[in-house]
Design a protein around this nucleic acid. Structure first.
Lengths: 321, 321
DNA sequence: TCGCATTGCGGGTAAATGCTCACATGAGAG
DNA sequence: CTCTCATGTGAGCATTTACCCGCAATGCGA
């Protein structure tokens, strides 16, 4: 940019690139026309155009609220090394964020379901996953296998409320493998007994090797799903929080750095936990101010390498910790 | 478009086009990649991208002052004593000059809108101003007031086609003051009656004291906007031209020296006229061979002290009269 | 003046793009 | 209920673009 203020005996610098870029992007001319207009070869015109781009002479902006979301996606990807990230416009404070992100989550799942090669797809549970199911289109995908990561026996012995895997299986006609163990066993030995059953072991093995994982993220505040759904008592919740618990994925509790705790309900939680740093997609579906510390932890240790959220949550996740 | 029967808040609209456009222009992905990313066919991706372009969602701006244009700017400033001048590369003869200068005009307006102190900004009308609006980025600037210089009631009683002030107001969330009088009244006494109304007087006062003015420039040739938009008849146009009319700003006609005529439609034009020699910025946005005599007149008498145009028009303005 | 490396140019070519043309789907009129 | 129109979609194809490769010109140190 240190051009002397002389007149035009030197008309040839990146000025030409600017002019070529102008003609290309604004006037919509083809590179052939630009070449003719400027009296140079097509190849040179092409180089000028691409140089105008590389030098940042051309500024492209998107006049749409989606634009901000796209910028947030990129920022989240960079910050947490995500392989997949989707940010949707928030519905405003106070509104339930689940409907907004559910259809995007459903679209993401459908992308995998449409793949012809058989996949094993693992699912957590929770309201976000339930929203995903509701937003899904029925779709024939019998080549895949759907497996639950989390036990689906509630404390009272019934099947768990949000039986995500079964509902998806209904919609896509794929075989499903429920995890026939309690979400949280009363004690460690009972969990071991369940896990020792051969049918359960087969499901556990399937879940551990799943090609794709879709999970929600639970917060540890007083409205923790684990608590409101009756899996932990208020006292135990408070204890775990005092010990640093920040959130949970598939019932497994971790701290603000995303490290799994080795006490509390983690000794009694059924099913498999999502290991940090997987190469396979591990996609979190979660939004809301109260979930921010939980999501941040899961992203930091790469328990999740993909995220679907809303713009307000994305901004909070990008704010300095 | 297969609409999911579910209650999606905003399932899919041109949001997809915006997303595709962002991926294409900002992220630099190929249409194949976009198709894979969004789970649609390549053809659809291409359609989305081109729609994003057609809908004006994508805005391209050039961050470089081409040497030749800078020289023209300086020459125009010197010749006509302009305080602001911006010359953009022409798009070639025959091409519509409006898109080229619109984004520069939008940038100029945005500079004023970003000022924290409240301003009163006055606007004329016409295609150039309309192009400006389309090129503008949405921007929160509620501290300013936007006022129309020109009446916005068309001959048939409808609101005028290019309701610039309202559209800008939409984009920047600033209060706006339309000029509720006919662009051109049938006779002098009717104009006086309109102007005597107290609400109109308040708007007139606001318009007279506006801190910044953005206006187009109309030519008096057979394609005069005043004529094509139905405000003057062919006969009247010819009469005025015979009497020396060279152009008009905000509906007020002047001769080749920029002196306002005191007959013809000037006795019936609503709104305020831009007085020559203002200290406050009075910025004209105009380009095209047919407008050259009009622009020259407006510059000569300093009706305008700022100009945004293209290189071809700038050269014509600098040619000896 | 002579290597010798660096840079820019034109040619050629594979990939990407846009465009047109049938065909499906659905709404609305008859 | 059928026909028609309007809209959207996928496929094929011509055009346009991006990239790779020799070649020549220029700059530089020996």
């Amino acid at each position: 940019m240190s051009r002397p203020p002389k007149t035009d005996p030197e008309p040839t610098v990146q000025d030409e690139a600017a002019r070529a870029g102008w003609l290309y992007y604004v006037a919509g001319m083809t590179q052939d026309q630009i070449a003719a207009e400027m009296g140079v070869s097509r190849q040179r015109a092409q180089r000028l155009v691409s140089r105008a781009m590389a030098d940042g002479l051309i500024q492209v902006r998107l006049n749409h609220r989606i634009g901000a979301c796209m910028d947030l996606e990129r920022a989240l990807r960079d910050r947490y090394g995500l392989t997949r990230c989707r940010v949707l416009p928030g519905l405003g404070p106070g509104a339930d964020p689940v409907p907004g992100i559910a259809s995007a989550a459903a679209a993401e799942l459908e992308r995998f379901l449409r793949m012809p090669d058989p996949l094993v797809i693992g699912f957590g549970t929770g309201r976000a996953l339930r929203g995903l199911v509701d937003a899904m289109e029925p779709l024939e995908a019998p080549q895949h296998r759907l497996v639950s990561l989390i036990g689906n026996i509630a404390p009272d012995g019934s099947a768990s409320f949000f039986d995500v895997v079964m509902r998806i299986s209904d919609k896509v006609r794929a075989p499903h493998y429920p995890m026939l163990v309690p979400v949280v066993s009363p004690d460690e030995s009972l969990r071991a007994a369940f896990h020792a059953l051969p049918p359960v072991q087969r499901v556990l093995e399937l879940a551990r090797t799943a090609d794709v994982l879709f999970v929600g993220v639970g917060q540890m505040s007083n409205d923790a799903p684990l608590h409101t759904d009756g899996f932990v008592s208020s006292d135990e919740l408070a204890q775990m929080r005092a010990a640093g618990a920040a959130g949970e994925v598939a019932g497994w509790v971790f701290d603000s750095e995303g490290r799994y705790l080795d006490f509390g309900i983690n000794t009694r939680t059924g099913g498999v936990r999502v290991e940090p740093g997987l190469e396979r997609p591990a996609i979190g579906i979660a939004a809301g101010a109260t979930k921010v510390p939980a999501i941040r932890g899961a992203l930091k240790s790469r328990i999740l390498n993909g995220l679907i959220t809303d713009s307000a949550t994305a901004e909070a996740l990008l704010a300095p910790a």
